[in-house]
Structures are given as C-alpha cells and as structure tokens.
Design a protein around this nucleic acid. Structure first.
Lengths: 117, 117
DNA sequence: CAGGATCCCTAATGATACTG
DNA sequence: CAGTATCATTAGGGATCCTG
C-alpha cells in the first residue's frame, strides 16, 4: 500500500523535547547508522530488499528491516510487495524522500571541504 | 587556544566503516542529541557557557560540556577562556562551523515542508 | 526471498554531588 | 561561573536462529 503513515517517532532520541527544531526533526529521520546509506542507495532508483542488503554489506537483516520500516513509516520511502512466490519486494523514494536531495547535496559539499582523508 | 585539533572521532557510531560517506561524516559531527542545538544557538553569535545552558534547558552539565568538547575537537567551535575570577568562557563558531549554515538551511526548508505540527 | 523473534552488549545519555 | 567525577539507565545496534 505504501500509504504515508502518521508521524512515527522512531527510536532515536524518543524523549527529545525539541521536536520543532528542524535539525532535530531531520536527525530523527535520517540520523542513524543505516538510514543515510539506504536513502543514498535509493537515490539511484528502485531497489529490492536483497539488492539493498548486497549494496550495504555491513548491515544486519534486523537493522535493514527496522530501517526500512521506519523510513516507510516516516513517508520517506515506499514499499511495494508483489504477491508472488518467492516474495518480491521493491523500495523506492517518495516525493518527500526525493526532496532530501538538496540536504544531502549540502552535506556532501561540506564534507568534501572538511573531510581530509 | 582554540586550535583545531586533529580529527577527533566522537562517540557516535565508533565502529562505522563508511567514514568516507559524507552523510556519515556529517552525522558524526552534528548527529547527536545536543550538537545541532548548540550549533544553532551559536549561529546567533558568541555565547557563554551559562547562556548556552539557559538556552537549552533540558541539557545536563555533563552532556553540554561533552558536546562542547567534541565540537571544539572537531574544529566546529572555538573556546575562549578569560583568566578571571569567576571564570568567563566564550564559545563561537569557527569558519568550518559557519560553513554548516547551508546544510542547516536545507534541513530547515525540508522540515518546514514536512514537519506537520 | 524477505522478513520475524530473541537474547545480548555497549554506546549514549541522565542524575547527582562536588570543586577551582 | 564553569566545569569534574561517579554511578545508573536506556536505547541503538548486533548475533543467531526461525518462517510464510
């Protein structure tokens, strides 16, 4: 269905008071270990579960699923499950997710300037 | 002195493999509970320790100090201590810290668009 | 193939008391 | 005023095994 569910508090900083702070708001949505990697991967296009897993080898199944669930609940990605056997599930970015591009672009600029390695 | 120290790995995601990912890089530097709030406050100008504490009432002394130390070690803020009694310490953004402004600007734009509350 | 369910560990944060 | 120090808590993440 991939309907955008009501704002899901994910597990980062649950008790954070400052939900109106934009930086905090966005940190809730892409500020953990795996979300940015998944989002970046989905910027390339639609991906299946297994493709994401292979693209991000270090992630465990538990964390990948958890990450995908949260991104879906936050309306950043869509999940499309085809009713076939074996299962076939696709993930892609919503408009909301695609709108993260300028944010990521600026992050990349800053990182390229200061990430000396 | 406020010299920029060598890249300090802070405590977020210590074992993260992907240090070359820009999003990860920046998440290390402003991706915890208090850093964004401190940075945002310092965008307004120089602040004393006590002013920061009052501006962010929910932060504990321990976390505020820890946050400030890490931001300083990462070259994002400067710490200037005046040798007087009682102590007088000022914090402000470095050039590197100020360069976070476009990043924050884009975050704010996205948040204003999708933060429905 | 695409997940769920459990158990476990440690990093991140908090509470409280103390100090130059 | 601007911190330290110590102890306690919790949430994020990992390992492993299981299933429609």
């Amino acid at each position: 269905m991939a309907t955008v569910k009501e704002s899901s508090t994910n597990q980062i900083n649950k008790r954070l008071v400052n939900t109106r702070c934009p930086v905090t708001f966005i940190a809730h949505r892409m500020g953990n270990r795996w979300k940015p990697l998944v989002i970046r991967e989905l910027f390339q296009g639609t991906r299946r579960y297994g493709e994401l897993k292979r693209a991000i080898p270090a992630v465990t199944e538990k964390m990948l699923i958890q990450t995908l669930k949260e991104l879906e609940a936050d309306g950043i990605i869509n999940r499309k499950a085809m009713p076939v056997v074996p299962p076939h599930v696709e993930y892609n970015l919503t408009e909301c997710g695609k709108d993260l591009e300028p944010v990521i672009t600026e992050m990349v600029k800053w990182s390229l300037k200061y990430n000396i390695q």
